[in-house]
């Protein structure tokens, strides 16, 4: 994306840092096969010197559509201030193996997307989420009935 969004209560803190998270994938096209290894490096900019409480990194899939969202977290790691947070900020990397399913799917009613999510927790209770989509499985997008007739 990145889908950077900030939430939480910063009222009164006067801080306005809007971080930017850059995620670098080991495959340029961001296309992966099921059970393939995924290697990621993330860089965080724009912290403005604000103290952090924690950083969460996860690999997950979610559905997108007009109905309720479904979501599954495949891998998750939280790094707290006491566990060497400075070592991963402003950058970090991880390598995981993807599962067999679900596969990325661009459907008409629902879509399945995989993403790397980096969530930054500031000391003043605000948090910032950045998501970076990649593909698993190489399934072709669904076509509408009219498209098939043409």
């Amino acid at each position: 994306m990145p889908q950077g969004s900030i939430a939480g209560g910063s009222q009164g803190s006067g801080s306005t840092a809007m971080p930017r998270v850059m995620v670098h994938f080991d495959r340029p096209g961001r296309d992966y096969a099921p059970r393939q290894q995924l290697a990621v490096r993330h860089d965080i900019e724009g912290l403005g010197g604000e103290p952090l409480r924690a950083v969460e990194r996860s690999v997950l899939w979610y559905t997108e559509g007009k109905g309720e969202e479904d979501l599954g977290v495949h891998w998750f790691e939280r790094i707290d201030e006491t566990e060497g947070l400075p070592a991963v900020c402003p950058w970090g990397e991880f390598t995981i193996r993807l599962p067999m399913s679900p596969l990325s799917y661009e459907g008409l009613i629902v879509k399945v997307r995989w993403c790397v999510r980096v969530r930054i927790f500031f000391a003043d209770n605000r948090d910032f989420v950045s998501e970076h989509v990649f593909d698993v499985g190489g399934i072709s997008p669904a076509r509408a009935p009219l498209e098939r007739l043409e």
Partner: peptide, 13 residues
């Protein structure tokens, strides 16, 4: 590992 940025965050869609 060899990591390549497919797009920089600044221009990522």
């Amino acid at each position: 590992m060899s990591l390549q940025a497919s797009e920089s965050a600044a221009v990522e869609r």
